[in-house]
Design a protein around this nucleic acid. Sequence first.
DNA 1: TAAACTTTTGCAGTTACTGCACGAATCTGC
DNA 2: GCAGATTCGTGCAGTAACTGCAAAAGTTTA
Lengths: 220, 220
Amino acid sequence: MTADTPSPSRPGPSAGAAMGLRERKQRALRERVETIAVNLVDERGYDGVSVDLICERAEISQRTFFNYFGTKEKAVLGNEPPEVTEEHLARIVADDRADTLAVLFDFLATLDTLTEHERSMRVRRREVIMRHPELMRMIFARVDALQEVLSAAVLQRMLRLRGLTEATPEMREEARMTINMSACILKFTSEQWAREQIAEGILPGLQRARDLAARVLGAR
Amino acid sequence: MTADTPSPSRPGPSAGAAMGLRERKQRALRERVETIAVNLVDERGYDGVSVDLICERAEISQRTFFNYFGTKEKAVLGNEPPEVTEEHLARIVADDRADTLAVLFDFLATLDTLTEHERSMRVRRREVIMRHPELMRMIFARVDALQEVLSAAVLQRMLRLRGLTEATPEMREEARMTINMSACILKFTSEQWAREQIAEGILPGLQRARDLAARVLGAR
DNA sequence: TAAACTTTTGCAGTTACTGCACGAATCTGC
DNA sequence: GCAGATTCGTGCAGTAACTGCAAAAGTTTA
């Protein structure tokens, strides 16, 4: 699966109690570098910060940087969209509600839950992303990458709900449009979120955006 | 405005009759390089082709390549989205139809008209893009870049149609959602277009996609 | 044809990123 | 608490996209 994590094979955020010295050090380093990276980008913009500079500040070798993050972007933006797991997908497929979009919105709202460090970083990141449109662009590119996996899940869901085994072309089309619309609405809402500083969770925003979208589409 | 055109300052596609040797040569070179680039990418994929290779095949220096295209991407994909001109925007603002989405669809369908060379390249490009999802991604990234300009135009249009001078926050929101939706539908339709090989123009596809989108959004 | 102007090119440099291999740290079983 | 097995961090060398600069070659103009 070409695991993202370069060399440090961290065992997921599930780390409860005692973890070895090795892992503790790695986490510390990772957090330190991410913090430095985000702060630098806030000061100088994404292109104004080189990997070399980050490494210098963090006192690590460039090679280590790439072992940890793989790309500059990941160091700055984090490894999100937090890998969509099989479990996530299964939950989408298993949900019994008729309103697929609502199911997807719940899923999107869930994506938000991560490590301790991530939780605090996320606030900071949102600020920084808000101030730097370049970063916003990158975020959206990531959401796009999810579409394939998700539309497969939605299709399966449709099959299950209708008690069918084989998908018609129309169903495939509908599945794709469904995730297309959710991605679109998510995008709109995040933009909104960045523009104004909104405190509430993302779900109400998604629902409002959905209504607006329906209105816009319907207005012939 | 940081004109894209690197050194050859071509005077637009409006070239009617006699143009100097210089310009003729430049056009020829440009076309030759684009053709070579697209064909190579078709054979080996985007990442499988280096700028150096293209230059070697085209018998030009790397420096010249970058003078012409600025980026590898532009050589392969062309300089589209064909710069949205003031005129384009003005036409959107001036359109009297109430259905903004329809106006935008017409605009999108129009974007398709370009130079002679472009016209024949476009067919070839579409084939190649169809076979290479990486390229599709890049195309979408470009569409996203247009959003800001377009939503400003839509907002102006709304103001005009309603005989107002000042925009309310709600109107801004609506304008953004409107272009957001058209981009989304365009994206869906192009994907569709690439997936199946569709001969007809893009407009009917857009309209069909719109209906599907409305259906998906409404299904609570 | 010569002067004026543009284009092409070579060259050196920057930045992101990769593979390899060696020494150092950590972890394991004893 | 020590030795051996892993796993990490790092330096080094290399690739690929792209940029600036200034000389060389081409085109246009008078």
